[in-house]
Design a binder for these strands. Structure first.
Lengths: 136, 136
DNA sequence: CCGTATTTGTGCGTATGTATT
DNA sequence: TAATACATACGCACAAATACG
């Protein structure tokens, strides 16, 4: 499997697919750093811009995280804490605005869960560390 | 309010904040197109690249949607359909992978809600059109 | 129906800044 | 200190899709 220049699918999306499959297949281990952007661009024969777009796409999916000066890492799914949806309660999922995401110290590509109680109060939980439950 | 070059906050993030506030304030109407990328770059005195990064950020938040050849539009929040979280059921929220998102015909910046039933089956719902409920 | 203009998408190049190693 | 690596920012060119006369 490699990059097809004649495909209508953009190079960066093809590359993202390849890396994503590599993550699913265990070729890229959770918690371990990916090759550097320059290395990836050489290995796959694409421009660095395509690599950066691919990584940005994977970040927006919550699959990898990137910090300045370090190579991107495969994200390790954190433990989930169970939160009960109360009787008469409602819950929705949405993406946080950037300032809110930074404020809550959340990674990119992670949604928030809003739990609305019957009394009108609302709780916001990070989507990657939360599991909504309803007791049997 | 405008772009501060001396700020440590990147230009594209400042611009995203300005546009986001403009959306919240009603300056940019839901469903209506934003100014074109070139127009925005001229109005705010920044490069087109900064504009595109700002719009990409807003897309990842589900605030705007962009289609080729058209100006970006302020997303209109769709109606939500209520889905009951069954007794003994669990639910999590996550971002769909790009192919999955395309397959489900979902906009960028929209999470999915996975409802796991006690019998082991799973339903996947689009996060922008779904509201999880538990009857009182 | 057909060109033309507009607009976004992609790709590449260059330079500089900032953080880590 | 130096090297490496990612982040930001600007520019240009062309492709592809849409909108419009």
């Amino acid at each position: 499997m490699s990059i097809d220049r004649r495909s209508h699918t953009p190079v960066y999306r093809q590359l993202a697919n390849l890396i994503r499959e590599g993550i699913y297949a265990g070729q890229y281990v959770a918690g371990a750093p990916l090759p550097s952007e320059v290395t990836l661009s050489q290995e796959y024969g694409v421009g660095r811009d395509a690599v950066r777009q691919a990584l940005a796409l994977l970040r927006s999916e919550g699959l990898v995280s990137t910090e300045r000066g370090e190579r991107s890492r495969v994200r390790v799914p954190p433990e989930r804490v169970s939160v009960e949806l109360p009787p008469g309660g409602r819950a929705v999922a949405r993406m946080p605005a950037d300032p809110e995401r930074v404020e809550r110290d959340m990674d990119e590509g992670v949604p928030v869960i809003e739990v609305h109680h019957p009394d009108g109060t609302t709780e916001v939980h990070p989507g990657d560390k939360t599991e909504l439950i309803r007791p049997a």
